[in-house]
Amino acid sequence: MKSLVLVEHENGDLKDATLSAVTAAAKLGEVHLLVVGDSVSGVAEAAAKIAGVGKVHVAEDAAYAHQLAENVAPVIAQLMGHHDAFVAPATTTGKNVAPRVAALLDVMQISDVIDVVDADTFVRPIYAGNAIATVKSSDAKKVLTVRGTAFEKAARDGGSGTIEAVSGSGDAGLSSFVGAEIAASERPELTSAKIIVSGGRALGSGEAFHQVIDPLADKLGAAVGASRAAVDAGYAPNDYQVGQTGKIVAPELYVAVGISGAIQHLAGMKDSKLIVAINKDEDAPIFQVADIGLVGDLFKLVPELTEKL
């Protein structure tokens, strides 16, 4: 079986989400990659070095610069003539484009795959992770999005893929990119960080959120996350949100500060290796999943922890 994996990249960097998708695709057989973008030869070269990859297809056009699904999906659909499965990371880019590809191919997509059983059978969470379904597809070709936290990252070197240019139809004339507000941060990215410090509604204000959470994150070299309650209250921006409707993370260490542990938050972080919870309510549900719990006033405990680390 031959898979085509969509390479996720930004500003010339190949993102980790790609590496997990390669691991998932490798379970199906041969792995080919697709890099779509504008001036992406550097990304293609990096992609060709990923362990175990065969061909790296590269489609370059100004119309592909912002991964607009209307322009990118036809490129993928065309390449699927020679592939048996399309695999995209379950990122906002992958989730945007994959179903468009699936419909063009008349295939029922399997979203958020967390395990590959065989060429037709996949495991995925449903009901916000409250249930895990094993599904078998009868489609001749497969379209999958895969959850990065569920698969090891393939090695960034050791591969010797061959790069091959493909021509696409370019601009479909349906959509254009206007602009982006992408938060610039010195901190690691949430979905690939080894350590995450997340704040909840108990922080009480945006100011307190930064005063308490940021120094601890800086000390640990951690990414900063937030619960939906904290985001909805305006204490933290939306892209900080960890949970079923935000980002799904599984770092080595997850520190939950002032987070009660609503189902929707737990769905986004319960696969973390080590969970530490700091909360004043000893009955908070977060303690049911935490490996180490500390009950008390976060405004005292967190600065103390930051200082002593």
Partner: peptide, 27 residues
């Protein structure tokens, strides 16, 4: 349907760990 659901199970449970009494113990 193109997909057949073979099984649906509960997610694996995470065991609650320990509660510590101080920041030093946590560290």
């Amino acid at each position: 349907p193109r997909l057949t659901t073979l099984s649906v199970r509960e997610p694996s449970k995470r065991e609650a760990g320990v509660k510590v009494g101080s920041v030093d113990e946590l560290i």
